[in-house]
Amino acid sequence: MRSEGDGKKGRGGLPLRGDPLNVSPSRSVTAIVCAAGKGERAGFAKNKLLERINGKTVLERTLSAFDFSAVTEILVTASQADFAEISALCGRFPRTRAVLGGNTRFQSVFNALRQASGELVLVHDGARPFVKTETILGCIASVLQYGSGVCAVPAVDTIALTDGAGKIAEVPPRKDAFALQTPQGFYTAELLSAYEKAAAEKSGGYTDDSSVFAAFVGRPRICAGARDNIKLTYAEDFKDNFARVGFGVDTHAFGRATDFVMLGGVKVPSDSGLIAHSDGDVLAHAVMDAMLSAAGLKDIGYYFPDKDEKWRNADSMKMLVAVKELIAAKGFAVKNLSVAVQAERPRLAAYIDAIRQSLAAALEIGPPAVGVSAGTNEGLGYVGEGKGITVSAYVLLKGV
């Protein structure tokens, strides 16, 4: 029997993240990445792991997480329908190959286990692309010390067990409740033996590898998971977990011979207009730069150069719509926007709502997702002296 040692523990015996990870380089480790599903709950027409997010498939992101020296082999389970495509993706990673999966997760893992060459095996959901190296190494260390390592995080909600008829039968103490994640690590021979026994008995109902191990080997040990090691299950998971934040700032000086300034597509009366190649909408320009920055694109000067006569006196709100289309091509859309205007003049309180409505319409989001504030600079600097306007914009992009 392997000793459990006296390592420092957290809640429920969970090893704390500060523990040293003594992973022996002489131990061979096979990672089995489960990728033979269909993604039906996500509502996609194909395997959700083959969906591209910001230019990369979910599966590529997951494989990248395991592509380091402690993992000596990566086996990716694939359905017959996806086998060719997944095999091609595996070819981009060293020590990685596809194996034919089955109709269930159990069958897919069983098939892969019979081909695993590592002394240790880590089984991981392909739909968890955010797993960190630290978590993987912690799982390996747990197997070496305790014989198993099941990544888990303490439950934050009260967990109830029902009687199958919709009534609560038992509420375990929350201090003892954990949400299990992957990877789940074991000695390969032990997990394979457990799967063989389960297959021989035609046992069912196993939702993960720890339950198979528990049924035929012994009680598995939990190790530290991570809150951000989430599983992409539903369509909204793919949007919300690939969000980007961007910041943009722009300044224009007064001096144009007009009696108004354009701010967010709204004409605001003013003693003087703002000097610019376009219509001088400093607010729209700051928002555009924030959007482009968040999407990893170049700034507005690249897309709308002030030496190009095409943009002379151009409507900046039309330019904003063009930027919306640019980020859409990269797989993003604006989720919410916050804008701060610094201007000694003109006074903007009466125009804030119209600016919010204008920005919301151009970006095709609800007005509640747009915040606009305005303030003076208390007489300090070029803004306080009434020489110009500066606008700062923060934007949150969502994946689409």
Rank of each mutant, 00 (worst) to 15 (best):
L232Y: 02
A290W: 00
L326W: 13
T162F: 14
N229A: 10
D19G: 11
S316F: 10
E134R: 15
M262R: 13
V249G: 04
G37T: 02
R114W: 10
G381K: 00
V249W: 00
I86C: 05
R2P: 11
A98C: 09
V29D: 04
A45C: 09
I389L: 01
M262V: 04
F93E: 04
I168T: 15
G7L: 14
E73M: 14
I389C: 00
V71K: 06
V131D: 05
G280F: 00
K175E: 12
K175F: 07
H124E: 07
A78D: 03
G166L: 06
E85M: 11
I86P: 05
Y234G: 09
L120R: 03
L100G: 12
S203M: 13
A349Y: 07
I53L: 15
A81K: 15
R128H: 03
D250N: 02
N336I: 01
N336Y: 08
V143L: 10
K48F: 04
K330E: 15
N22S: 07
L396K: 12
N103I: 05
T30W: 08
S211Y: 12
E51Y: 10
I53V: 14
P154I: 05
G37N: 01
C34L: 06
D281A: 06
Y382Q: 01
Q342D: 05
A88F: 07
A198R: 07
A350R: 11
A65D: 02
V341W: 00
T207D: 14
L274S: 00
K132A: 14
A243N: 05
L137M: 15
A88P: 01
T376V: 00
Q181R: 10
A84R: 14
S26Q: 14
F130M: 03
A322P: 06
G118H: 05
N229P: 10
R227D: 14
L326R: 15
L75H: 06
N111R: 11
S270K: 01
G166T: 10
R174W: 03
Q184I: 03
L89Y: 04
L137G: 02
G39I: 02
F130N: 01
K231S: 14
S270Y: 01
F106K: 02
A322W: 12
F106P: 04
G301P: 02
E196S: 12
V282A: 00
D6V: 11
G375Q: 11
A199K: 09
A333V: 06
A295K: 05
L137P: 09
V321R: 14
A393K: 01
E40R: 12
M288I: 07
V58E: 06
F254D: 00
L396E: 13
E170A: 11
G273F: 09
S117V: 12
G366L: 15
A78Y: 03
G384V: 00
V143H: 08
T258P: 03
Q115E: 15
K48G: 00
A350Q: 11
E170L: 15
